[in-house]
Design a protein around this nucleic acid. Structure first.
Length: 192
DNA sequence: TCGCCGATGTTCT
DNA sequence: GAACATCGGCGAT
């Protein structure tokens, strides 16, 4: 089952705070070269906007942030701390510099492949952080700008409704840290 | 279980 | 030259 692109586009064109909360429970997958789908249910997101000092888009368009100012429904992948990749979904209308950081998923397929990429760590350490998530799914800089549901990335609606969503401060930032723009559910947790 | 700290490269001041 | 949307190892509790 595939979400009609125009429906997804419409959802993601809302503001990043709205989208960040809405995406909890959606499913995010990478289509591997052998055709299998690696990924799972989104359980933690953060919103970033152009007016937000913690956002890469805060200082306007640069070569790095250009993709954030483009149309919604694309990926913004950036390299940080000299060794880690993180993935965002671009939201809002074109020109607005908004995105939603994917911080955690609970994998529901290709667990062996994920465990291998994560250095054979236990389930609970598979994808509970933005850089771990990218490592587990094999997302790197060349994926920057990829369009959801048109290439090797899938974003699919929830299989079941998420009941509890907590709203908290964002993690690992110093500027505009008071904003309650992090959303996380404990409905689903990796076991073992 | 907690907290400190080093790794490592791009971006911005 | 400093900061950084992080992670994992290590030593102390």
């Amino acid at each position: 089952m595939k979400t009609p692109p125009h429906d997804l586009q419409k959802l993601l064109e809302k503001g990043s705070v709205t989208v960040a909360k809405s995406l909890i429970g959606w499913r995010f997958y990478v289509i591997e070269q052998d055709g299998s789908h690696t990924g799972g249910v989104i359980t933690e997101t953060e919103a970033y906007t152009e007016e937000d000092a913690a956002s890469h888009s805060y200082r306007g368009r640069t070569p790095r942030t250009e993709i954030m100012f483009g149309p919604a429904c694309r990926l913004y992948v950036y390299f940080t701390y000299g060794m880690h990749w993180c993935v965002n979904i671009v939201t809002g209308l074109e020109g607005h510099g908004e995105a939603v950081l994917l911080r955690a998923i609970v994998p529901d397929s290709e667990l062996d492949r994920i465990q291998q990429r994560r250095g054979n760590r236990p389930n609970t350490e598979f994808t509970n952080g933005p850089a771990k998530l990218c490592q587990a799914l094999g997302i790197i800089g060349t994926d920057n700008g990829a369009v959801l549901n048109e290439g090797r990335f899938l974003l699919l609606p929830p299989k079941q409704k998420v009941l509890h969503i907590e709203t908290t401060k964002r993690i690992g930032i110093s500027k505009d840290a008071h904003r309650l723009w992090r959303f996380v559910t404990t409905d689903l947790t990796a076991t073992n």
